[in-house]
Design a protein around this nucleic acid. Sequence first.
DNA 1: AATTAAACTTGCAAAATGCAAGTTTAATTT
DNA 2: AAATTAAACTTGCATTTTGCAAGTTTAATT
Lengths: 123, 123
Amino acid sequence: MKKQVQILTEKRSECPISCTMDLVGDKWSLLIIRDLLYLGKTSYNEFLNSREGISTNILNDRLVKLTEVGLITFTGTAKRKKYELTKMGHDLKPVLESVALFGIKHSTADKAFLQNVKKKMSL
Amino acid sequence: MKKQVQILTEKRSECPISCTMDLVGDKWSLLIIRDLLYLGKTSYNEFLNSREGISTNILNDRLVKLTEVGLITFTGTAKRKKYELTKMGHDLKPVLESVALFGIKHSTADKAFLQNVKKKMSL
DNA sequence: AATTAAACTTGCAAAATGCAAGTTTAATTT
DNA sequence: AAATTAAACTTGCATTTTGCAAGTTTAATT
């Protein structure tokens, strides 16, 4: 993980939107945050079993990076890690909410399912 | 552009958060939306000149994809396109706002700059 | 008529991703 | 106590995406 130093300092601009996308602007990071925030998941295998099907190397990479940027931490032993959101990570909750509301608004999934999502997220 | 059909139908899951990330979960799409929504930019070259420095092929690819998924459209001639957000694109405003607020909260940029960002975004 | 410039387009190297399989070692089972 | 299970990685490799530099096309301007 030698290039993590770069990733931590590499900012495309000072724009707060750009900076946030530098942290979580990929297809997987916010899904891990979602799992932690709404689905009660805390471990590698739980994230791995999410319906979107993240692969093991990507999951590992994202857990390392999210930890390094300070969005998540973990407790427990190396073989039984329990991940949790940091204070900074919890600050992403409004982002998850607005993203979910957009997704719900433009989803074609059935009403009952979407209603359940809203309930789970208190939306 | 043969694989756009796939991209339009390819959903990792029904989760609204996952679906939204399928649309704009990359480092560049939301910056184009930002340019349209807050910086008054409407053309290829204006997007190209944004401070983050998107490259021409990626910009073109994103403009095509954002158009195909219905987040933006354009008017004008092929050589003088004017892009604008669709209704669906405008629905991303709350996302941009929450993303910006998170970025501002965790930014180390100087206060005056951040205050200006907030003003520009009416935050 | 010549020049400019906006909007792409292409080629290629580097990086990120996806998939399958293997490894390590704590915890559990027998 | 020995064997088995399983959680958390790790590796290899093929595919895809990205970044950078350069080139192309044609409407608009000079």
